[in-house]
C-alpha cells in the first residue's frame, strides 16, 4: 500500500486517496485522477481522503465507481497538462478511442454513470455519457426511440396521445 504523501513536494510516490462506495468497497487511487471530480477535488485539497480515513460516496455503488475511476485514471494525465494546448494528435486519438470503447456498455450502467458523473461533477464524463444517449436517439422515430431506450410498450391510450402529438408537432416532423 502506498504511503500517503506528506507536504507538497513533487518527488516520491504520487499522493493516493481512498474512496468508499455506497456498498462499502474501498478504492485507492491517485489524487490527481480523483481530482477530475470537482466535488472530490475540494475535499482532497483540504487534505481529506488520505491515510485510513477515506472519502465516503453514499450515492455511488462499487460497480459504477470502478467504471468512473477507469475514466478518471485514463484522462488524468491530459487534464494535468491543462488539456488541449499541449496534447499531441496521437494522445487525442488514443483518448477518443478509449472514450468510444468506454461508453459501449449496458444501458443500466450508462444511466448509473450519468448520475455518478453529475453527483461527482466530472465534466468530461458528463458530456461523454450524455452524448452517447443522444446518439441513441438521433434519426429515430418515436417508437424506435422508445424501444432503443427500453421504454415499456405504450398502452392504447398512450399510443393515441402519441399520434395526436405527432399531428400537433407536424412542423418538426415535416
Amino acid at each position: 500500500m502506498a504511503a500517503p504523501e506528506s507536504g507538497d513536494g513533487n518527488n516520491g510516490a504520487a499522493r493516493m486517496v481512498t474512496l468508499i462506495s455506497s456498498d462499502n468497497t474501498r478504492f485507492e487511487v491517485e489524487a490527481a485522477a480523483a481530482s477530475l471530480s470537482q466535488t472530490l477535488q475540494l475535499t482532497i485539497l483540504d487534505g481529506g481522503g488520505g491515510g485510513g480515513d477515506g472519502i465516503p460516496l453514499p450515492n455511488v455503488d462499487s460497480a459504477t465507481l470502478s467504471k468512473v475511476l477507469e475514466y478518471c485514471i485514463k484522462h488524468a494525465p491530459a487534464a494535468a497538462n491543462g488539456g488541449a494546448p499541449n496534447a499531441t494528435a496521437v494522445d487525442r486519438a488514443e483518448l477518443e478511442r478509449f472514450d468510444n470503447e468506454f461508453v459501449n456498455i449496458d444501458q443500466s450502467v450508462l444511466y448509473s454513470l450519468i448520475m455518478a458523473a453529475h453527483n461527482l461533477e466530472i465534466e468530461g464524463l458528463q458530456s461523454l455519457v450524455a452524448k452517447k444517449v443522444a446518439d441513441m436517439i438521433k434519426g429515430k422515430s418515436p417508437m424506435e426511440i422508445r424501444r432503443t431506450l427500453g421504454f415499456p410498450d405504450p398502452t392504447p391510450e398512450e399510443q393515441a396521445e402519441m399520434n395526436a402529438h405527432m399531428l400537433e408537432y407536424g412542423w418538426a416532423y415535416e
Binding site: I137, P142, R146
Partner: peptide
C-alpha cells in the same frame, strides 16, 4: 443539448 433543435422537439412525442 447534443441533438439539433429539430430532433430535440421530436422527442416530445416519445412519452409524457
Amino acid at each position: 443539448s447534443f441533438l439539433t433543435a429539430r430532433q430535440a422537439v421530436q422527442t416530445c412525442v416519445v412519452s409524457r
